[in-house]
């Protein structure tokens, strides 16, 4: 298998088909960046500021995954993935290659967003920011694997799409809701880290256990 050439051809075609999604995402993140405004300067508690930065990063990265996963739905409806089970490479490796372009794009957009936001959150320790970025990367990879596997195996694509959509609100509103409930900020940060790792582990498990029968019959 010529791995790099495969990744290159996937990326080329992904960028071609997702050009407008990219424009839309960049616009969306610019709006989000502006919306942050002076909020960080108004926050005196560094822990809360860190939590705010972390959740913004997770939510924005999820938004990129949400948009790019639409391509996967289309491929599924065209039975593209049936072929992946009759090729001389383990299917989960081919799926990972397929996802490499959208995952990398999401990582890149999140990284750019983090760098831009860094000015506004400059009072935070650099190592905390790097930790959040790494955790977000793990989360993005995990979330792609989870939704990709579920979409491939489930008959009802609409229900998966609804869950995907509802999660945008969940990621946006849950952190502030939990804060208002008085849960300690450290507990929330650790929960977020553990949650990202969990999503990653579940994603890896699911993508390496995709049942061809479910894919073919769904």
């Amino acid at each position: 298998m010529k791995l790099w050439k495969l990744i290159k051809i996937e990326s080329k075609n992904f960028l071609k088909s997702s050009f407008f999604s990219f424009i839309f995402l960049v616009a969306l993140l610019m709006i989000l960046y502006r919306a942050i405004g002076d909020i960080p300067n108004a926050m005196s508690d560094k822990n809360i500021l860190y939590f705010y930065f972390f959740t913004t990063l997770i939510s924005s990265s999820y938004a990129t995954a949400f948009l790019f996963l639409i391509n996967i739905d289309r491929d599924k409806m065209n039975n593209v993935y049936h072929r992946y089970f009759v090729l001389p490479v383990k299917p989960h490796i081919l799926f990972a290659i397929k996802l490499s372009a959208p995952v990398f794009s999401s990582l890149l957009i999140s990284l750019i967003f983090s760098i831009l936001s860094y000015q506004k959150f400059s009072m935070l320790n650099t190592h905390l920011i790097i930790l959040s970025i790494l955790d977000t990367f793990i989360f993005i990879i995990g979330i792609y694997f989870v939704f990709f596997s579920l979409e491939l195996m489930m008959k009802n694509l609409t229900s998966v799409a609804v869950v995907r959509f509802l999660l945008i609100y969940l990621f946006s509103y849950t952190p502030s809701y939990l804060l208002r409930k008085g849960i300690s900020i450290n507990t929330l940060i650790y929960t977020l880290v553990i949650f990202s790792i969990l999503v990653f582990v579940v994603g890896i498990y699911l993508i390496s256990h995709i049942d061809p029968e479910k894919v073919v019959l769904s």
């Binding site: 065209n78 593209v80 049936h82």
Partner: peptide, 8 residues
């Protein structure tokens, strides 16, 4: 049915 990438 066809299983090649339709957009490629």
């Amino acid at each position: 049915y066809e299983t090649l990438n339709p957009d490629w």
